[in-house]
Design a protein around this nucleic acid. Structure first.
Lengths: 213, 213
DNA sequence: CGTACTTTTGAATCGCATCAAATCTGGTGG
DNA sequence: CCACCAGATTTGATGCGATTCAAAAGTACG
């Protein structure tokens, strides 16, 4: 087996080192099959979950039943925002086999109150997430597939190089595109030599965007 | 003069009551004319600003020069996320006459370290902002003007009723639509009796979305 | 080998962006 | 009060790009 055959879409994530020791002690690992539910719309939060590997989607449904992707987490805390809400505002589903580290919510809240360092680090993490989400809003406001692709690679990648985080279909969903549109645009960009694809590695060769991420 | 003639687009905001007293003491009020710059891309943050009235846009520019709206603030803190970044990732511009309350950033950071209550409240505010941004991402991923309008009214309004926060043109920008598309869709919805407009008050009469905001 | 899923290509259609222009509005100054 | 201006609002015509439906080929996995 070589590295190319690795089944996981995303690199493994590690628990932040700033988590209090006693919180780590009381955590437990949860494994989820693809398709399994983490939590459902309307439920009261009782845990705080950290994604170690796999992929969790947070979803809502329109009246017509179509699915909306709120957030695609391949690692890190999910539902950080739920720490002070009464009920979850969406569903969370594992779209691939996933492992989570689960903290009891009450303990988590108490630890935040107890440790100033923990609170401070938690603050910084929330602030980063806000910046990330604003970037995503910026991207979704772009009108063409090409612009969103370029924007994603420039913002989420490094010097125009991006390791594809998941399937193209899943990426298309995050970009707010149909998967057909994404496939077509990618092959157009490849034929125009604006984009190189080697396996899961995308290399943007066109005009640089502001690299402000 | 009656209430209908008020020139401001948004209701006035008030400084959160959880701000430390000494921080408030050292703050100063800043008035901005429409078009004035609050901060520019790449600058080092030296203050933390709270919008009392008016409207601040946070913008970036694509390589082709077109403008992207990152965030439209009609009140509350802008650039909360900038508290621990080296440079601003966007421009901020007043699009109408605005008044800000400006805190010195260093003092703000020190106050956060000093006061546990302040940190905690700040945390909750950041978490709310994350939820709001995820809602906006959800909205922008919708493919039709009608769906985005309905989504906005259901999420940002109250029981299907929304007080227009700004000009239609500005709203169109936030919805990721051209203003023409928004005008057309609104009049279509009105003629279909799906939407009522009385001045700046929008009333959605069609099928309810999940009211999960 | 069969199943489920992703990836890919094709064709038709729809919705929005775009350019253009007219009207309306609020505010300014003569 | 009226002329004027800048901006928002509104309507029209056109074209492009993405969606949608359809179907085939590729791929992972048991």
């Amino acid at each position: 087996m070589n590295d190319q055959e690795m089944p996981t879409n995303c690199s493994a994530y590690t628990i932040p080192e700033w988590l209090p020791e006693n919180l780590l002690q009381s955590s437990r690992t949860v494994t989820l099959e693809a398709g399994e539910t983490v939590f459902v719309f309307g439920a009261r939060p009782v845990s705080m979950d950290f994604v170690l590997s796999g992929e969790i989607h947070m979803l809502r449904y329109t009246p017509s039943g179509s699915q909306i992707l709120l957030h695609r987490s391949c690692g890190g805390f999910i539902a950080e925002a739920s720490i002070d809400i009464a009920t979850y505002p969406c569903d969370a589903v594992a779209v691939s086999n996933s492992t989570l580290v689960r903290f009891e919510l009450k303990q988590f809240q108490e630890a935040l109150e107890f440790s100033a360092e923990f609170r401070s680090a938690w603050n910084r993490m929330l602030a980063r997430e806000i910046r990330r989400l604003r970037t995503q809003c910026e991207r979704l406001a772009l009108h063409t597939a090409q612009a969103r692709i370029a924007h994603y690679i420039e913002c989420e990648g490094r010097d125009g190089v991006l390791e594809l985080p998941s399937t193209l279909k899943s990426w298309a969903h995050e970009l707010g595109l149909s998967h057909e549109a994404l496939y077509r645009e990618l092959s157009k960009l490849k034929s125009q030599k604006v984009l190189q694809m080697e396996g899961r590695r995308l290399h943007w060769l066109g005009t640089k965007l502001q690299n402000s991420c």
